[in-house]
Nucleic acid binder design. Structure first.
Lengths: 344, 344
DNA sequence: AACGGTGCTTTGAACGTTCAAGATGGCTTA
DNA sequence: TAAGCCATCTTGAACGTTCAAAGCACCGTT
């Protein structure tokens, strides 16, 4: 226990004080921490003792000032409305946790559109010497990635650069494979007409997932025509799309949702019609959101921790070769896994 | 446009370079920024011109090293599972946005329990010279607030220190008032039996909200007995509790939920029974989550931006009087507002 | 005996800012 | 006219670290 005044503000050990106490020089203490191979066994131990005893920790601000590295990575916060699937928050959590384990910290910022986000970059970069950015919600013609590339700022995106020719590191989840696994599962349960509830055209992620469903159906020689619907990402849309599909002459018995919200909407419609999970009704969603877990909806879970680790790997690699040759960007595609609950 | 090498790494204006160009000294430039009243009108303008032209911005690391202030505030991230109501994420967003507007940045961290969170404090404080902490999810016997107080670290909590004698600054939302407004609204619609779907005993927040319902009913001379239920915070629990209350001889016609999830559960039960919103069925939730908005559930919205601003006010006040007398902590209670949708 | 190398250690400077103190010059006041 | 004051501006030091260079002792070669 320290005195009444916080130890953080008053006397705290410095390189100098540790050095004095261990009867060595500043630099030797620094070497013990940053380049132990340069220090003799004996001195090293002596210095380490003092460090342990005094609880010395280097001051980040001084290190940053000297080295231009902050051990800080920046992540944009999606607006609560955008983050319907909670993936954003889940990813932020995972990223922060993994980053912490590597000695990095996470700085968050908010931004309305690409333009204002870019000006936020400028501010963040001038103020703190960020080690890199992790972007989410990349879209076609993303100005942010272009700007960051142009300025040689290390960054990774969670999500492939859909359609654009942008060359940068990314980590992503194989949505097609996830949806395919979900569809295969439903087919395995005996369903012969599996519908896909998707997003409106134009979303790379959406088309990818849809392709997974199509491939699975084709592979099982099952029909797809008349079984795909497009809608906004909402509960109500999922519900009414489901209702509509059920009107058909030969209605689907199983539904794969491009997202949990949509799948939950469909599932509520099925429940409203008294259709219990089983041969006549099954639903799988995507994202494994808290709502899905609560409602017992089977869902495709994104491996957020792995994505986070992959992003950090990319950043560290970029960091190391900061001044070297550009090298080819890393591209990591991870397999999601199907979480089975009562809905399928 | 800068050269091929990022401007952030190569030559960037410093106090020194600006000073040279404006033909003044370092300190004068510093004064222009930090104490303009010490500088003559003419010099000030000249220096400001150079600053604008060169795009000079002070390096945070150097400032921090000198002043021990980082303009960084730390916020703990709730685990995605805890953040069911999405309040956590919404608050983080609001806080980050307000902080940004004041020139502060938000650092996030994750922590499992109080103990590990405290050790995270130690790490964060040694590494970065944080300006303060914003805590959420305070509970009775919170070790975190005790530790922070003991070490004289500036901090605020979003949430009152329920039951504990802890003396620290906080900002909170008047849940009782919010629920009371919701109940009053339902009564105004003509409902005579308004039920309350609450959390299990022992939660300060939960009891506070419940009290709001009770007061409203009493004030309108309406019954409360047999109309309150306690349950876990889940959709399913809300639904079955609703079903159970509807079995009564004289069943409620309106429901106030302590949270959106619970309220949504109740609403789905009503829908399943074919009860349309109106004289025989009405529901209001709490938190104004995205799910509520999507489902058309009326809900009590927490003024997250105002809470965030209040938290920042508290922190800045603590910061200013850091070495002065402790002073009495700020306590800010904000009114939530009722968002009306189709459910009531 | 001089030389080059290697393992370990120290020294001075630098990063970019702010603080504390001092310098300058004009104006007021005794 | 000297003293004091104020407004304005400058200087040197300090914050705590790392970098670049050098020093020293010891070794094996020549």
């Amino acid at each position: 226990m320290q005195g009444p005044v916080s130890r953080w503000r008053s006397t705290r050990p410095t390189l100098e004080s540790v050095a004095r106490e261990a009867a060595v020089s500043r630099q030797t203490v620094s070497n013990v921490l940053n380049a132990p191979h340069l220090v003799s066994e004996e001195t090293r131990r002596r210095v380490e003792d003092v460090i342990a005893r005094t609880g010395y920790r280097p001051v980040r601000a001084a290190q940053t000032l000297r080295t231009r590295r902050s051990y800080l990575i920046a992540v944009g916060l999606q607006t609560p409305a955008e983050d319907r699937g909670e993936v954003g928050h889940g990813f932020l959590h995972a990223l922060t946790e993994r980053a912490q384990a590597r000695g990095y910290r996470t700085l968050v910022y908010t931004a309305g559109n690409d333009k204002s986000e870019i000006s936020t970059y400028e501010n963040l970069l001038s103020d703190y010497d960020l080690d890199g950015f992790v972007l989410t919600g990349t879209h076609t013609g993303d100005e942010r990635t272009a700007w960051l590339s142009r300025h040689h700022i290390p960054f990774v995106t969670f999500g492939r650069p859909w359609g654009s020719a942008a060359r940068h590191s990314w980590a992503d989840v194989d949505g097609a494979a996830g949806i395919r696994a979900a569809t295969d599962h439903l087919i395995g349960l005996g369903h012969h007409r599996v519908a896909f509830l998707g997003w409106p055209e134009g979303s790379g992620v959406g088309e990818d997932r849809r392709a997974g469903w199509e491939v699975a159906c084709r592979a099982a020689a099952l029909p797809t025509s008349g079984l795909a619907a497009r809608m906004d990402n909402s509960f109500a849309a999922g519900r009414s799309a489901c209702a509509e599909l059920l009107q058909a002459d030969d209605p689907p018995t199983a539904f794969v949702g491009v997202s949990d919200v949509i799948a939950l909407g469909a599932w509520s419609e099925l429940a409203a019609r008294g259709l219990q999970p089983g041969p006549q009704a099954a639903v799988v969603g995507f994202d494994d959101s808290a709502a899905a877990a609560l409602a017992g909806l089977s869902s495709v879970a994104q491996p957020l921790s792995e994505v986070a680790s992959a992003c950090l790997d990319c950043l560290q690699k970029l960091q190391e070769h900061a001044d070297g040759p550009a090298g080819s960007p890393d591209e990591v595609l991870l397999e999601p896994r199907l979480i089975l609950r009562s809905s399928a």
